[in-house]
Design a protein around this nucleic acid. Structure first.
Lengths: 144, 144
DNA sequence: GTGCTTGCAAACGTTTTGCAGACTC
DNA sequence: GAGTCTGCAAAACGTTTGCAAGCAC
């Protein structure tokens, strides 16, 4: 299984930092690697519990935190609901529609000019983390 | 007082929409108009209560909601804490430092290119509302 | 008088925490 | 064996809601 292979180097990194590899953690990580795009902590917990019913939501939160510290995942606030988590390697930004809540992913490259400008004018290093851009999608812009 | 003058047209708009003008609402609005920049609902409540101790936080939330519907204020999520409210007329964006939490305001104009590009490529109409940009400020970028 | 608005208290949804036992290394 | 991680329950946080009384119009 591809997911299992992808998990190994991450678990190795975790161990190298003094962390422990448990069955819960393995299940959480492999589930996360198998998810395309975003998941909320709640949705991820549900998926993990389909395999290991005793894994608690707080364990998922704690391990996602750890994975974030390791630089493996990021979490993003898309709006008023729960945060979503995604692999850090999959760097992208989010267009969130104020009208219908639709989320569109856009490549990091779209923000290259803005990044350069913020760096030059404000000394600010733009990071893909936590970044959500709101506005109105094509459909919602039509109905005023 | 300047604040009282600025409040009148807003209260008139409120009345025109079928809303009622109460002492609580007047106090909340005048306090908000007297605040430069952002306030959290909690901070605004505290300031209002300095004048009218019986105004409850839930009343502040409800009225801020109403003001938002009237287009007078916007609220922005800067990070993990509470949302901040500001006058809609004062349109700007926020650079939030992931390291130290510092917030810098930048004029809307900085995002003009991005706006054009998102419109052209994605049909997405960028709005200043809810918009927070994270990264690292000059100081935090130095210490790696 | 109609019906919007209020204070209060209690609930909400998401996330964090304190604990004692279980587990990895 | 030392120290990390777990499930559980309970708290924390910011915000919303249901209610009966109060007030603006």
């Amino acid at each position: 299984m591809l997911v299992r292979e992808k998990a190994e180097p991450i678990l190795a990194l975790l161990r190298a930092r003094g962390g422990r590899v448990t069955t819960s953690r393995r299940a959480i990580l492999e589930t996360l690697l198998g998810v395309a795009g975003h998941v909320t902590a709640e949705a991820l917990t549900a998926r993990v519990q389909a395999v290991q019913p005793d894994v608690h939501e707080s364990t998922v939160y704690r391990f996602l935190d750890e994975l974030e510290r390791l630089g493996v995942v990021d979490h993003v606030h898309l709006g008023h609901g729960p945060a979503v988590y995604h692999l850090a390697a999959d760097a992208h930004h989010h267009l969130v529609c104020d009208g219908c809540g639709a989320v569109e992913e856009v490549p990091d490259e779209v923000f290259a000019d803005l990044r350069g400008r913020l760096q030059a004018e404000f000394g600010f290093a733009l990071q893909p983390r936590h970044f959500a851009v709101t506005g109105h999608c094509r459909a919602c812009a039509m109905r005023p």
